[in-house]
Design a protein around this nucleic acid. Structure first.
Length: 347
DNA sequence: AATTCGTGGAC
DNA sequence: TGTCCAAGAAT
C-alpha cells in the first residue's frame, strides 16, 4: 500500500477539485443545492442503484414531496408509489421513518454530525458520511463502491472490498486525504472519477486527472484492483400464481408478509411448487414468468382457479383502478402483462 | 461475518 | 442466457 506525504495529499486535492470544478457532474439534480433533505433522498435512492435510473425518480419525488415535512406527513402508500420500480423497498420505508424522526422527534433540527446521522433509519456508514460532508461540511470519507475502486487503485490496497472489515482499512488510509475545506466536493469528485476515467470496466486511466497519483497504473497492475470476492448466484424457486376473477371482474390479490422479499406488497397469491407437474388448475401459459432478484430467481406459472377457500385476512379482490393506484413490484407487473397477452390471444 | 434485500443495463 | 454489477443497510 502507498503512503502519501502531506505535500502529495495537498497536490492531489488541488488536482482532483480543479478537475471536478471543470468536468464534474454539476448538472445532477441533487447537486442543485446542499439541502440535507435533498441529499438524503438522493443518497437513499442511489444505494446500489445507477445514477441514470435515479434521476427520474428523484425529480418526481421532490416535486411530490418537496420538504422533509411533506415526507414526514405523507402516507406510506404515496411514498411506496413514488418508489415503485426502484427496488430495495426497505429504503423507502426507512427514508420515510427518517423524515418522521427529523420532523417529529427532532422538531426539524437535522442531525449534522456523522455519528448523529448514523442513528437515522436507512443511514449507514456511507450515507452518514455523504450527508455529513455534502450538507454539513464535515470532513469524513464517504466510502462507497466508487471510493473503494478509486483508492484501491491509487494506493494499491489489496484488501477484499467485499469484506466488512475492509472499510476500516480504507477509512484509515483516506481520512487524512479528504479535503477539510471542501469535503463534500471531494467525496463527490471521487464518485465522478469512479464513474468516468476510473470506472469498473474499460477505464481510461491514462487520461485521468489524477493519473500521476495512481500506483496500480504506474506498476502496470491496474486490472488487479479492486480486489473483490464474487457473490453467489441466485437460487431458483418455482411458484404457481393463482388467477381468480370475481363477478365484477376484479382480480384476487394477496399481501405478502411484513418481512422478507417484497415485504408488504400485494401480488397474485403465490404457492411454491417443486415442479410443473404440481400445478393445480388450468395452466395459462406455456412459458413461465421469470424474475431475478439479487439472490433468488423466481419461475412463476399463472394458473386459473375456480375458487379459493374463504378469503383470508391478507386476500382481496382489487379493481383495475385500485391496482393502478397502489405500488406493485415488478414481478406483479410482469404477471399482469402476461394475463393481458393471454386474454388478447384468446380473443 | 455472511445473508438478505430489487431492478435494469452492459457485455 | 448467464453473469456481474450500481452512490449499501439491516440483521
Amino acid at each position: 500500500m502507498e503512503n502519501w506525504n502531506q505535500e502529495t495529499i495537498e497536490n492531489f486535492r488541488k488536482d482532483l477539485l480543479a478537475w471536478y470544478d471543470q468536468e464534474g457532474r454539476a448538472h445532477l439534480p441533487w447537486r442543485e443545492n446542499t439541502d440535507p433533505y435533498r441529499v438524503l433522498v438522493s443518497e437513499l435512492m442511489l444505494q446500489q442503484t445507477r445514477v441514470d435510473t435515479v434521476i427520474t425518480y428523484f425529480n418526481r419525488f421532490m416535486t411530490a414531496l418537496p420538504t422533509v415535512q411533506d415526507l414526514a406527513n405523507a402516507p406510506e402508500e404515496q411514498v411506496l408509489k413514488l418508489w415503485e420500480g426502484l427496488g430495495y423497498y426497505s429504503r423507502a420505508r426507512n427514508l420515510h421513518q427518517a423524515a418522521k424522526v427529523v420532523v417529529f422527534d427532532l422538531k426539524g433540527a437535522w442531525p449534522e454530525s456523522y455519528d448523529d446521522l448514523l442513528s437515522l433509519p436507512g443511514v449507514g456508514p456511507y450515507t452518514a458520511a455523504a450527508v455529513a460532508s455534502i450538507a454539513f461540511n464535515q470532513a469524513v470519507p464517504a466510502i462507497d463502491g466508487n471510493f473503494f475502486r478509486v483508492f484501491s487503485r491509487l494506493l494499491k490496497i489489496d484488501d477484499d472490498i467485499a469484506k466488512p472489515k475492509t472499510r476500516r482499512v480504507f477509512y484509515d488510509a483516506v481520512a487524512p486525504i479528504v479535503d477539510p475545506k471542501r469535503p463534500g466536493d471531494f467525496n463527490q469528485a471521487i464518485m465522478d472519477l469512479g464513474t468516468s476515467y476510473m470506472k469498473t470496466n474499460d477505464p481510461d486511466t491514462l487520461h485521468s486527472p489524477v493519473v500521476k497519483y495512481n500506483a496500480a497504473f504506474r506498476d502496470g497492475v491496474e486490472d488487479q484492483y479492486p480486489v473483490k470476492s464474487k457473490k453467489k448466484k441466485p437460487i431458483l424457486q418455482r411458484f404457481q400464481a393463482l388467477v381468480l376473477y370475481n363477478e365484477k371482474g376484479d382480480l384476487l390479490y394477496e399481501q405478502r408478509p411484513d418481512s422478507g422479499l417484497l415485504a408488504g406488497f400485494w401480488t397474485l397469491p403465490l404457492r411454491p411448487i417443486d415442479s410443473i407437474e404440481d400445478l393445480q388448475g388450468e395452466q395459462l401459459t406455456i412459458k413461465a414468468v421469470t424474475h431475478v432478484f439479487s439472490h433468488r430467481k423466481w419461475e412463476v406459472w399463472p394458473v386459473k382457479v375456480e375458487q379459493v377457500e374463504k378469503l383470508t385476512h391478507n386476500q382481496r379482490f382489487l379493481s383495475p383502478a385500485e391496482q393502478e393506484a397502489m405500488a406493485l413490484p415488478k414481478l406483479q407487473h410482469k404477471l399482469l402483462k402476461n394475463l393481458k397477452e393471454q386474454h388478447d390471444v384468446s380473443k
